[in-house]
């Protein structure tokens, strides 16, 4: 499902003395099947833009296309329900949204609200609990007896139970320990690949953007100022600095090494494994020349 924002502006408390624009003329296209990372400094408009992806916010001006549906400023949005089923948002700390008596009921709540039968919703819940890496006996427990990491997984299963085509992630690993972070990010990446989802990751981790995204959009002061592929975008530290961002740590480290050895490696490396390989290669070639 393609998502397209055309000249989208959004003002909070519009028409009051507190009116404040959070988005200005944002242009952004996300093609179906893309893993897109949206990065930007705190207050750049990342969270505001995210709420436009399933019609939680309606633009103050401009148009949002979500698949074949259109949400347009000034017009009453009709039929937002199908959009909300197809675009699943995993908010920051999604475990705060858990409310049911049991994990099973909580996961089933979303799909049943959209008319899925009890039997099918239960079937989905049973499949998903394994997929998010939890034992199935957890389904009968209260979500509030689980650890933070387990609650997060249950909440994610609840979003996945809607069988969305687009999944929007707002800092999905905040507060998790390093292993939990990696497991959750790998889970979304596997889902992205296996189910052919469109994945939109809103993050301030340049490392995650570099590791997982096909494309990156940079937000700055309410505008979408730059889009491109991670390798090209992270190669240009000067431009990133203008938007108060830094390349991922591995890229900064590569710059330091290049400065020390007085030559450039053949490419900008986005993950540690890639840089190790590239450096190993350069060192072997250096030895052969001697």
């Amino acid at each position: 499902m393609d998502i397209k924002l055309q000249q989208v502006s959004y003002a909070y408390s519009k028409g009051t003395p507190f009116e404040k624009y959070a988005l200005h003329d944002v242009e952004l296209s996300i093609a179906s099947g893309t893993y897109e990372a949206i990065i930007g400094h705190t207050g750049s408009g990342k969270s505001t833009i995210l709420q436009h992806f399933n019609g939680l916010l309606k633009p103050s001006s401009g148009t949002v296309h979500i698949g074949d549906r259109v949400v347009e400023a000034g017009k009453k949005a009709k039929e937002l329900k199908p959009i909300r089923q197809k675009v699943g948002i995993v908010f920051q700390f999604p475990e705060h949204q858990l409310f049911e008596e049991t994990v099973l009921k909580d996961i089933m709540f979303g799909p049943m609200n959209f008319g899925v039968s009890e039997k099918d919703a239960e079937k989905r819940a049973r499949e998903l609990i394994t997929l998010v890496g939890l034992p199935d006996n957890i389904l009968e427990k209260s979500p509030f007896d689980l650890s933070g990491g387990q609650m997060r997984r249950v909440a994610i299963a609840g979003v996945l139970a809607m069988e969305p085509e687009v999944i929007v992630l707002d800092e999905p690993t905040a507060g998790l320990d390093p292993r939990g972070q990696k497991e959750i990010m790998d889970l979304f990446y596997t889902l992205h690949k296996e189910k052919g989802l469109t994945t939109i990751l809103v993050t301030h981790s340049m490392e995650d953007a570099a590791r997982y995204a096909d494309r990156i959009a940079i937000m700055h002061e309410g505008k979408c100022v730059l889009t491109g592929e991670p390798r090209a975008l992270f190669a240009d530290s000067a431009t990133l600095a203008k938007y108060r961002l830094e390349p991922p740590r591995v890229v900064r480290f590569q710059h330091k090494v290049e400065q020390m050895i007085g030559k450039k490696l053949s490419k900008v490396c986005l993950i540690e494994e890639e840089l190790a390989e590239e450096l190993g290669q350069a060192i072997r070639e250096g030895r052969a020349e001697q």
Binding site: R179, G180, E273, L275, A276, I283
Partner: peptide, 23 residues
């Protein structure tokens, strides 16, 4: 550290990866 859910500092991790590449 990794077995217990943590990670290594960047430089430590990079050192190990480089050594695995024969550096």
């Amino acid at each position: 550290l990794v077995d217990f859910g943590l990670d290594l500092p960047f430089a430590t991790k990079m050192t190990k990866l480089l050594q695995a590449q024969g550096v």
